[in-house]
Design a protein around this nucleic acid. Structure first.
Length: 598
DNA sequence: TAACGAAGCGCG
DNA sequence: AAAGCGCGCTTCGTTA
């Protein structure tokens, strides 16, 4: 390998001009001071050279030179480098781009996609670990070491690009899916750069109310023993002489300070089961006693302290994960979540810092979503696919009852309840569980019946949805014969060809159908999101905000909100035609809103 | 003191 | 038999 540090702008321009004439693509990578693009200072830029073992590096000061580069840009995670460039005043987003990280995920969704892991696996070259063992930071390393480190990344990324392209071709992954994936990432790049506005007053007010709830509930918990508790020890604990759980010694000690932590599940379990003598609830999976919400619910009628602990848990979760979690990430009134295109094996987008997809949506807690607001003068639109999984399952299976649900508006939960002779509320859980491939053990747990009765319930379920059963069986046959199943976009969910034991095969059988449904829904939503974002921008009406699995959100000017609403609705419905879905889709669009809410 | 896994829980 | 899919975040408690 030959690496060179280019000192002058002339040298850089010479090479770029050469690329513009001769290269199909140019590999690029940035060295910076932080993984967070908003904190990152651009230090150096690396670029592929005239032949495949050659790479160059030049100072980040010459970032502007890249604007004259015309060739296809190849990055490993372009979203990061483009954000850094944008925050240094250079927009690279009008250029064609390919991303070896995205391609690697399309080629194998089951492995890690970081450049380090890929290179280590493919070439066994551990120059990266050697570099980081020697130097505390990139900036601390001498120029020679920086050049070697940065340029090796380029050479390996260049090889990787060729290799993943060959693998995608061999697997028959359509170019349209490759193209869509990059366009989606481009839309998400813009979303990430823009960030999301936060209503600080609203958040702080909700936060202080929650904080007061937490304080009050904690006080009530500590006072409670004296009134309701028949356990003498707990009464004593409640009155000053408090018990302290010592993790080291694994036992209770009587100490004068109230140090019991209701937020620690181990301490709560010790309190409920050891101190109060409530019946131990055991986790079916781990065989260990548990103090999770389901366990607490099961014993809450036996002691008034239990529902209080459940309340406190809820308040703490809401305050800690969502109020503090969001406020801690606010910069000048905005948050900047990451939207990861290859964060899941199914093709869903994953979110982080914060995860917008886990913002509370149920009951009163949905008000937490109201934290997120559009720019002044804009409105929020949120549109979701109704019963998307049912539509997709019906499309694949053409199951009679599923088709009835879609065409006649029948309720899936009612049909299942009737078919199995169970309550509607239980039928709802059964429907979700069956989509996830559950066994008679889980069904027995849901219905509160014996395992043989659970088995019978599954038999009735498959009688009710016989067409679906045939399709699920087909999925299992494909799996067992080692053929990956492509979704309508050509995305593959790959499973091992060989299994060490029966259990691994059973796990794969549970996953294969579920992944197909989930992945199809994910691609439909993200395809719609890309189209929505690009059309809104083209028309100057606004932009895409983000997606939450089967929901597209956008922010649009109040002036065009109604037209935009039509556009979102039509675009999401249009995905059905695009993939020739055999059933009609349903899309529910919100009114133009002043904040994110139902 | 930092890093890590487990438990618990938010979402679809 | 490890027996419902896919994620990310916070806290706790242990270990390097």
């Amino acid at each position: 390998m030959r690496f060179k540090y280019l000192e002058t702008v002339d040298e850089i321009h010479d090479l770029i001009a050469w690329h513009n004439r001769h290269s199909d693509f140019v590999v690029l990578d940035f060295e910076t001071t932080s993984k967070n693009p908003r904190e990152a200072k651009l230090l150096d830029i690396q670029m592929s050279g005239r032949d495949e073992d050659e790479a160059v590096m030049f100072s980040g000061e010459h970032l502007l030179c890249l604007t004259v580069l015309e060739s296809l840009q190849v990055f490993h995670n372009f979203k990061y480098d483009w954000k850094v460039a944008a925050l240094h005043g250079v927009d690279l987003s009008d250029k064609p781009v390919r991303d070896t990280m995205l391609l690697h995920h399309l080629a194998d969704e089951n492995v890690e996609h970081g450049l380090d892991a890929i290179i280590q696996g493919a070439h066994g070259d551990d120059y990266k670990s050697r570099f980081w063992e020697t130097y505390a930071s990139y900036a601390d390393a001498p120029r020679d070491a920086q050049l070697d480190y940065g340029c090796r990344d380029i050479v390996y990324t260049r090889r990787l690009y060729g290799e993943v392209c060959r693998r995608l071709q061999a697997d028959g992954v359509p170019e349209a899916l490759v193209e869509h994936t990059h366009r989606l990432a481009l839309a998400l790049y813009r979303t990430e750069l823009a960030g999301i506005r936060v209503d600080l007053d609203y958040t702080i007010e909700m936060g202080s109310a929650l904080k007061a709830d937490i304080t009050r509930t904690e006080r009530e918990l500590r006072e409670m023993g004296g009134y309701h508790c028949e356990n003498l020890e707990l009464q004593a604990w409640a009155k000053e002489i408090e018990k302290v759980w010592t993790p080291k010694g694994k036992k209770w000690k009587t100490l004068p300070k109230p140090e019991f932590n209701f937020g620690a599940s181990g301490q709560v379990a010790a309190l409920l089961y050891d101190e109060l003598g409530l019946p131990e609830q055991v986790d079916k999976k781990t065989k260990r006693r548990t103090a999770d919400d389901k366990a607490l619910e099961a014993v809450e009628h036996r002691h008034p302290i239990v529902p209080k602990i459940r309340e406190l848990r809820k308040f703490s979760k809401m305050y800690g994960a969502f109020i503090e979690g969001v406020l801690g990430k606010v910069q000048a009134g905005r948050i900047y979540p990451s939207f990861n295109v290859n964060g899941t094996v199914t093709g869903r987008i994953s979110h982080s810092e914060p995860n917008m997809g886990q913002m509370p949506s149920k009951g009163d807690w949905a008000k937490i979503r109201g934290i997120f607001i559009p720019e002044a003068g804009n409105k929020v639109l949120t549109c979701d696919y109704g019963q998307l999984e049912v539509c997709i399952a019906a499309h694949f299976s053409m199951d009679e009852n599923l088709l009835r649900i879609i065409h006649e508006g029948a309720s899936q939960h009612d049909i299942t309840a009737q078919g199995l002779g169970i309550e509607r509320s239980k039928a709802k859980t059964v429907n979700f569980s069956m989509q996830y491939g559950c066994t008679e053990f889980k069904i027995a747990e849901i219905l509160g019946c014996s395992v043989p009765e659970g088995k019978d319930a599954i038999r009735k379920y498959w009688e009710t949805y016989a067409g679906l059963k045939r399709f699920v069986d087909w999925c299992h046959k494909e799996l067992e014969e080692g053929r990956p199943i492509a979704n309508p976009f050509g995305r593959l969910r790959r499973f091992p060809k060989e299994y060490q034991n029966r259990w691994e095969l059973e796990a794969a059988k549970r996953q294969v159908f579920s992944s197909l449904i989930q992945g199809t829904g994910a691609d439909m939503t993200s395809r719609a999101f890309y189209l929505i974002d690009s059309q809104l921008r083209e028309r100057g009406w606004g932009r895409g905000w983000f997606t939450v699995h089967d929901e597209c959100l956008a922010e649009v000017s109040a002036e065009h909100a109604e037209e935009a609403r039509e556009l979102l609705q039509a675009t999401m419905l249009g995905i059905g035609e695009e993939i020739e879905l055999r059933v009609p889709l349903k899309v529910e669009c919100s009114q133009p809103l002043d904040r994110w809410q139902k």
